[in-house]
Design a binder for these strands. Structure first.
Lengths: 155, 155
DNA sequence: TTAGATGCAAAGACTTTGCAGTTAA
DNA sequence: TTAACTGCAAAGTCTTTGCATCTAA
């Protein structure tokens, strides 16, 4: 786990007077592993069980709630029909998502120009922005040109 | 109901060989009333029951699925924890949403500059965009300045 | 006439919660 | 020591589905 992440977690636990327990450590390790993948509750549960098979879904959901409320995890909608969680907002607070409709890969991107435009529009409407998110669903050019992309071979 | 909307609905029903039944008429009327409000399944159910009290939730969900698949309704996430449905993409195919965190009001906006930027970013990443959506959560300046906004009076 | 649509109620998927026992600080 | 936390299982919420019946075309 990235030390910056560890620091933010510790700060949250101190700020809210939360206890660092074994079950929570396991969930944190599964959620904030170096890979930085998005996950659903069920996927996190699987990861947590690999670390320690005694993990419980109830505690996992309770911990997810704490982390989302503390701003360390963001709930995102990747069009799966279930809530996904994104652990990358600590290191990249302003990123957005592009979802490949061919292979379901999720690509994170940041763009200053868009961010500025969003702020302008918000001001013009008479508001001050708090959270901005862009989701682009798209199709992979590479798949169409070469017949394959990261996860798929065209039939 | 707007005639353009009626036309699109009829086209969808013909294209897919669907039957125009009484229960479906009621749901369509509730979903595509002139007001153009967003709604959850439960909210639509209430509206439908006002038109005809015999409405059934099963048929309503089945019809919602048809309309979403047909592109007439978009599923959107307004941060309520439940899926909301947006009937305004027929008349405004490229709009986005600003959600007021003070009063929960949802404001729709369109912006050509952002749309162009989104396309550029998508191309640069090697994709062709299909659906783009922006969600901005914001706080009402008016409430902070004058102590009141559309739905709230500051305490 | 008949394939498609309906309504009910049961099942399913996901998430939350009450409670008795456990544990970090 | 004790307030916070845990795991279990039960309950809750939202959505889907099987089936017998009905109906638009």
């Amino acid at each position: 786990m990235n030390p910056e992440v560890r620091e933010k977690i510790d700060a949250l636990f101190i700020r809210k007077g939360l206890r660092m327990t074994k079950p929570r450590e396991i969930i944190l390790e599964a959620a904030f592993s170096e890979k930085g993948d998005h996950f659903t509750a069920e996927e996190l549960y699987e990861k947590a069980k690999e670390i320690d098979s005694r993990a419980s879904l109830a505690t996992l959901y309770r911990t997810l709630t704490l982390l989302v409320e503390g701003g360390l995890l963001h709930e995102i909608d990747l069009g799966k029909g279930v809530t996904s969680y994104d652990p990358n907002f600590i290191e990249h607070p302003h990123h957005n998502h592009l979802i490949c409709m061919d292979c379901s890969e999720v690509i994170e991107f940041e763009d200053q120009h868009i961010a500025v435009l969003e702020d302008c529009i918000t001001k013009r409407l008479g508001f001050s922005p708090t959270t901005k998110s862009i989701q682009i669903k798209a199709k992979c050019d590479k798949l169409r040109k070469t017949g394959s992309c990261n996860n798929l071979i065209s039939k």
